[in-house]
Simulated scan of single mutants.
Amino acid sequence: MKKTCFPVSLSFTVIILFLMCSCANTKKIKYFQDMSEANTATPLALASYTEPIIQPDDILAINVNTTDPAATVSINSRNGVYVNSSNPNSGSANPLAGYLVSKEGDVEVPVLGKIKLAGLTTVQARAAVREKAVKSFNDPVVDVRFTNFKVTVLGEVNHPAAYILPNEQVTLLDAIGYAGDMTIYGRRSNVLLIRKQPDGRSFSVKLDMTKKETLNSPYFYLKQNDVVYVEPLKTKVLNNDNNLIKYITLAATVVSAIILAKRYW
């Protein structure tokens, strides 16, 4: 009797079709799908940037350069120094260095004394510190920055971590870029942003990275301590199922058995 490999080939066909169904659609991994693909400059409506507000428990680098070397060293000695690094998990050389904003919203600066900074932007804080400094020094040069401007990126990204950034003007795209971009299993249409408000309450909002309207969202620019979570596609959940291979094998076996039964029954 002539043998046939039809049951085997059909079994492989079932397996291939099953795997194809579990593959991620390339359309699901493309950003801003409704943006024009024409090779011309396209005007974009970007969200307006709002400077972050200093809050209690923030840590600030306060630098004051004066004509008095001893005073300058005393004031600036608590500040960390930012470095550029190729390591995606590093943000600053000493992220905890600086002046802690108290629960009352003050910082205690050597020589200058207590200064109220909570509720101010860093630009306004520089003016407040300089107002104190000019009482003791001529033409002081003042700089105030966040040293704990932290954004946490979790979920389906290549390098999930908490990132401490020297730059206050951070976008959602920047954060995803620091985390090494989303994986192919990241659900770009449903990115969750969790933000803590100054009153201590938190809220969440979902952003669709496949739509260009996200570029104009009031949440496109991030605030300190924001958390970005990239949800996985159902495809990954399916592919990570420990029983997947068993299901495929069982399906192929059943199909082969049915065909053999029909042939020889």
Rank of each mutant, 00 (worst) to 15 (best):
F6E: 13
S9W: 10
L10D: 00
S11V: 07
V14Q: 08
V14E: 11
L17P: 08
F18C: 06
L19K: 08
A24P: 14
Y31G: 04
Q33F: 06
T40Y: 15
A41F: 11
P43C: 01
A47R: 05
A47L: 02
S48W: 00
E51R: 08
P52K: 11
I53P: 05
I54W: 12
I54Q: 06
P56D: 04
P56K: 07
D58C: 02
N63S: 13
N63F: 10
N63Y: 15
N65W: 15
A71T: 07
R78H: 14
N79M: 02
Y82R: 14
N87K: 09
N87T: 13
L96N: 15
L100Q: 10
S102H: 07
E104S: 15
D106T: 15
V107R: 10
V109G: 00
I115H: 03
K116W: 04
L120G: 05
T121E: 11
V123Q: 12
R130H: 09
E131A: 15
K132E: 11
A133P: 04
A133G: 08
D139V: 03
V142K: 09
R145N: 13
T152D: 00
G155V: 05
E156F: 03
H159G: 06
A162L: 09
Y163H: 05
I164M: 06
N167W: 03
N167M: 06
L173H: 09
Y178S: 03
D181F: 10
I184A: 14
R187T: 15
N190L: 14
L192Q: 14
L193D: 04
L193P: 05
K196L: 08
D199H: 02
S202P: 00
S204C: 08
L207Y: 06
D208T: 04
K211G: 02
E213Y: 00
N216M: 07
Y219A: 09
Y221R: 04
L222M: 06
D226L: 05
V227M: 03
P232D: 10
L238Y: 08
N242E: 11
N242S: 15
N243T: 14
K246P: 01
Y247F: 11
Y247N: 10
A252T: 01
A261R: 11
A261S: 08
K262A: 10
K262G: 04
R263N: 04
Y264V: 12
W265K: 08
